[in-house]
Every structure is written in structure tokens, then in C-alpha cells.
Simulated assay, not measured.
Amino acid sequence: MSAVLDLARVSVALPLGGFLSRARLPILMDVSLSVGRGESVALVGESGSGKTTLARAVMGLQAVSGGSIALDGQAVEGAAGHARLRRAAAMMFQDATASLSPRLTVGYLVTEPFRIHGVALPDPEGMARELLAKVGLPPAMARRYPHELSGGQARRVGVARALALKPRLVIADEPTAGLDVSVQAEVLNLMADLRAEMGLAYLIITHNLALVRHVADRVVVLYLGRVVEKGPTAQVFAAPAHPYTASLIAAEPRPDPRQRRMDLAIRGEVPSVLRRPSGCEFHTRCPMAREVCRVTAPDLAPVGAGRQARCHFADQRKDQQGEQHAVEHR
């Protein structure tokens, strides 16, 4: 599958002590991932793991300090490169209502990308109605203002605006945040229908593992700005190779609380990026840490076809989790 988006060892470091300071604080470190044509990739991890920072870096809203970004095999460099990327990619922001200017009508907002990119529209009102119809909103919605929308309607307007220039890639930051369960299902079904109709590729940022199971072909797990595991969603959920991934899955809410694996529960708080632990950065919270984990940082290594994990004992964990998964589903 050819890649629409390809990140190679992307790093982001922010000034420490003010914008004039030379000291830098690493937020993202050597992140590599790809999104194929028509593919849905989920980026998961706790708050503070760097998910939104990565999305902002892809869109050129945050400067990268290392690595490379490529769109359709061509490097994204400088203002011209990011202008090309923003024409081919669109972003759905986490707070859909806050991303809409309260002074502009919905019709103006959904056609705003055309104005930004200098695309003349012979019939802006007709285009607004067409975009709203694509996401299941009535034409009358074009005359409303953002404060008159429900959360689900604001989310659909955000989708319509993202689709205006017919992008090949959509970056969706928590696309179901703050929505009722029924509305979440509507938004996810809409995204799935648009993916099938338009051949869209998605990079979905989320905490919601149920959403990941439902919509993602592959999953990438971030911890303290590093990729700790990635691979096909079904395989990762069936047999997680990294203890952090296993802990996230074990903490997922289930109807029967007796099925939760409390032995895999994550202990403590996420360490500060100002004081990164030595060795494996997860060892301070890992229920299975050994001495080598405290001393030596593991590499992101293959653990099967299309899968990688950053753990000294990834192969052993994958086998153990696979056996446990089989027992639980007998």
C-alpha cells in the first residue's frame, strides 16, 4: 500500500526557559509512522504522550527539530511544502465548537478553505449546502451560528469543512470527545461512509480504545513522546507486546468488572518530560520491570510481521498475552 503520509524519525523539542533560550525540551523523539491510501491509523496514549503535538507538527503548526515528513512520497519542506500538505490534508480539532469562529455563519465556515487557498467558487451558497448534505445536515443549517449548534452538529460541521477541498488525508483529534454514545456512533459511521465513498485516509488521535477497535486498521502507541508499539489493530489487541499497551487495554471499561486484569493496571503518574527515567522510560510504572529495564533503553524492534515494540521482553509478552486472550475467550 502506497503511503499518503510518511513520518521518519520526527522529533519536536520546545524552548526551555523562554523562546530566547538555547536549552530544548524534547517532546517527541524519533517518531516514525505511515498512513496508506484509504487506511485508518489510530494514535493512542495517555494525556501528555505527544499525540496532539505530532498532529500539529504534521500540519506545520509546530516546528519539527529532526526527522522528515513526506506526502505521497515527496518531502514536505518549507512554506511551499506545508502549503501543499494543507491542501491535501485536513484536520478535525478536538473541540469542534471552539474551532468555529462565533462571528461567522456555518455556510461561510464550511466554504472558508476555498477562500484560504484562493479557489474561486461561482456559487458559495450552493457549495455550502452540498457540503452540509454530505455530512447529513439540512441546508437551513448554513444560516446558523456556532452557538446555535449541538455538539454533534458542530462536529459534523467540522467534518464538512475538513472535506471542502477533497483531501486525501484527514487528521482527526479525538473525533468523538464530549459526545453522547449515540452521537459518537453517528459520527463514526459518517467517517466510515466517507472513507469508503472518497477513499480517505485517517490518522485518528484518541483515548477511546473502543473507537480504535471499531475504525482503525493499524494502531500506534505513544508513551512520553516515543512509539512503544505499533501494528495491525486486531493483532495488537489480541496479544500486546509492550506492557504499557497491555495496561491500556486492561484498563478499558468492560460490562463485567471481574474481567479486568488488575495485575496489569498502570501504577503511578506519567513521569515529567523534564525528568525522563533512565533505561526504559516505562520501567517506573511497569509491573514486570527487571534490572535491565532500569539500565538499558530498548530499541523499537520487530515482533512479527508488520509489528514492532520497544521492550526487552516483547516476544515473551506477546506469547503470554496471546495465551491469556485465548483462555478469556473460551
Rank of each mutant, 00 (worst) to 15 (best):
A246T: 15
Q316A: 14
H147C: 08
R86E: 08
A177P: 12
H242F: 03
D72F: 09
R267M: 03
S11K: 01
I204F: 09
I204W: 07
P302A: 08
G199S: 09
R24S: 10
M262S: 15
L61F: 11
V187W: 04
F237I: 11
I27N: 04
E130Q: 14
L248N: 07
G225N: 07
L43K: 02
M127V: 14
H214W: 15
D173C: 05
L211D: 08
S278H: 13
A251R: 01
E186V: 14
V270K: 01
P232L: 03
V31P: 09
A3V: 12
L300Q: 06
A75Q: 12
L85Q: 04
G36T: 10
F282M: 02
M92Y: 00
D319V: 14
L109W: 00
L188W: 01
A140N: 02
A246P: 13
V4K: 09
V236T: 09
M127P: 06
A201K: 12
P253V: 04
P124R: 04
R294A: 13
P113R: 04
G81W: 05
A88R: 13
R310D: 02
R226Y: 01
H325W: 15
F237E: 09
S11C: 07
N208Q: 11
M92D: 00
L149C: 07
H325A: 15
C311M: 06
D6W: 10
S150Y: 10
A239Q: 02
L137V: 00
D319Q: 13
Y108E: 14
L61T: 03
P113K: 02
L274M: 05
N208R: 10
L188N: 00
R86P: 05
G36R: 14
G18I: 12
A154K: 00
E174H: 10
A192I: 11
N189K: 02
L274S: 06
P232W: 01
V159T: 10
M92Q: 07
V10W: 06
P15T: 09
R24E: 11
A23K: 15
E130K: 13
Y223N: 01
D299K: 11
Y108C: 02
L121M: 10
V170F: 00
A246C: 14
L163E: 03
S150W: 07
R168G: 15
C286T: 10
H242S: 07
C280I: 01
Y145D: 02
A142I: 04
Q308P: 08
L209H: 06
L179I: 05
S34E: 15
E269P: 08
E77K: 15
M288N: 12
G268M: 09
A80K: 13
Q320F: 13
K51C: 01
G136S: 04
L163G: 00
H325S: 15
I266P: 09
A251T: 02
V41Y: 01
D299A: 15
G268V: 07
S272C: 06
G48W: 03
H117F: 05
C280E: 02
D263S: 12
S278L: 13
L7C: 10
E174N: 11
L211P: 04
M1D: 11
T53L: 05
T245Y: 06
R317P: 04
S2A: 15
C286Q: 08
A246H: 13
L264Q: 12
G279R: 01
A96N: 05
P302H: 08
A251F: 01
A238G: 09
A309L: 04
P271F: 05
R129E: 14
